[in-house]
């Protein structure tokens, strides 16, 4: 194996490790946040202050892009049902902190937790 090959293997391996590490950090040390912002096609659909939720409830979002069922609990939010093809939004699980947003790309839906203010 020549030097150039070794050099590039090392470069890509290093970038890989840094990226995995960065994502793990982002995921486990989310920032404080209480307001879940649900967006469909770039427009804010709903803002929910998760700190004021006392009883868990479901919300159904039906748009021209498709159907998603959002489950809202005190302090956290998740997608529990959807008619999209890959169900990645459901498998992303429950989020409680700002950091990694839930996304359903086929339905152009995102759920992102932002800081403890509502600027609607």
């Amino acid at each position: 194996m020549n030097m150039k090959m070794k050099k590039w293997i090392a470069i890509f391996a290093a970038i890989f490790l840094v990226c995995i590490g960065a994502f793990a950090l982002l995921r486990h040390f989310g920032m404080q946040g209480t307001v879940a912002v649900i967006r469909v096609d770039g427009e804010v659909y709903e803002k929910i202050n998760l700190d004021t939720v006392t009883v868990a409830y479901d919300m159904e979002i039906r748009t021209e892009f498709g159907y998603n069922k959002i489950h809202i609990e005190p302090g956290s939010i998740s997608v529990t049902d959807a008619d999209c093809r890959d169900h990645i939004c459901i498998r992303q699980g429950t989020v409680a902190e700002a950091g990694v947003p839930i996304v359903c790309l086929p339905h152009r839906l995102t759920i992102e937790i932002e800081g403890g203010y509502i600027d609607a």
Binding site: F12, I15, F16, V18, C19, I20, A22, F23, L26, R39, D41, G42, E43, A98, G99, V100, P101, V103, L105, R108, L109, T110, E112
Partner: peptide, 21 residues
């Protein structure tokens, strides 16, 4: 651009890692 959710940028590192593999 489509979702106007800048927070999706946190997926950048994991997408780069996956591109390497």
């Amino acid at each position: 651009a489509l979702t106007k959710t800048a927070g999706l940028l946190v997926y950048a590192p994991v997408l780069i890692a996956s591109a390497i593999v």
